[in-house]
Design a protein around this nucleic acid. Structure first.
Lengths: 161, 161
DNA sequence: ATTTGTTATGTAATAATATAACCAACGTCA
DNA sequence: TGACGTTGGTTATATTATTACATAACAAAT
């Protein structure tokens, strides 16, 4: 979580422990249904992402992975890419960070509002996808995946300035 | 330039030497007008980005900087951030790479179509910015900057498949 | 219950990307 | 001239991510 200012950021998206438990259960169910294995390192990685109240860096996951000492990078990077493929998390390209998917249907594509002040993110549906595809189609480009990340100030942080 | 397939990519955006010269001149004029100094490392960095026919990595610039041996990373990273501030180049977040700005007015924001096959990029105006801002405004979020990067296949690469 | 193929993990090393810190050189303009 | 701000050189290091290869766990069929 990166703060670009000094004021307190008491507004947070932190999930309460029982809400996290619900998400962890749901993730396990999702994997089961998909015939994939929600192993312990994958679950631990997902848990740490849920515990963060903002996009979290891979190395922060690595550092927090074990109570005593860090995980090895490949352990966590493998889990991250699995979770991303399952649609359980998203990678934020402009932050090199990861955040839990916030939608029910675990789409593999989403837009993000990234607060430059408190570091929190908000997941949004990408507006006007057909227009973007149409714009691309002008030169015959066929879109497979859209990355949309808007930086700015969340409502709470505007108030604090 | 990263190829995900084996067919030839003979379609390219390569600027001819004289077109590059025009761009270099224009960049110098732009800096002059802005009261900024287009120094030799900045110019060399810009030149290498113009010579690439696709988004280029920082370390590729570093490697090509001198005829004999590489530049030091800070030299190039400083130039890149200067050029980006001037609107002469754009950073592609999802590639960790840089591309010359292709518009006349050197806006600091643009969208990109990124071909997963030939690695080339195409700069587009971000469609429907007001809709994106409106979507953000639903929760009071104020957008400062939009990153839009669409991966897919360019026209030429679709034809080759 | 063993074999076998597949998927997942462990481990060490290293690659790739980016910045910090500090001082020297240069420009400019009072 | 000399004082100040900007730019660049240099070394080191921080951060992010992957390769390569060995081992273990699991599933399914024999």
């Amino acid at each position: 979580m990166s703060h670009s200012c000094e004021h307190t950021h008491d507004h947070d998206h932190h999930l309460k422990p029982d809400a996290r438990a619900v998400r962890l259960e749901a993730a396990q169910a999702l994997c089961l249904e998909a015939g994939e294995r929600m192993t312990s390192s994958r679950l631990r990685t997902y848990e740490l992402i849920l515990e963060a109240n903002a996009p979290i860096k891979a190395y922060d996951v690595i550092d927090r992975f074990h109570p005593d000492g860090a995980a090895k990078p490949p352990t966590v990077y493998r889990a991250l890419s699995f979770l991303e493929q399952m649609g359980l998390i998203h990678r934020i390209e402009s932050l090199n960070a990861f955040v839990a998917c916030d939608t029910h249907d675990h789409k593999h594509t989403a837009g993000f509002l990234l607060c430059e002040c408190c570091g929190q993110s908000e997941e949004i549906a990408i507006p006007n996808v057909p227009e973007i595809e149409a714009s691309a189609a002008k030169t015959g480009f066929k879109v497979n995946h859209i990355t949309l990340e808007a930086r700015g100030l969340c409502n709470a942080c505007q108030a604090s300035h």
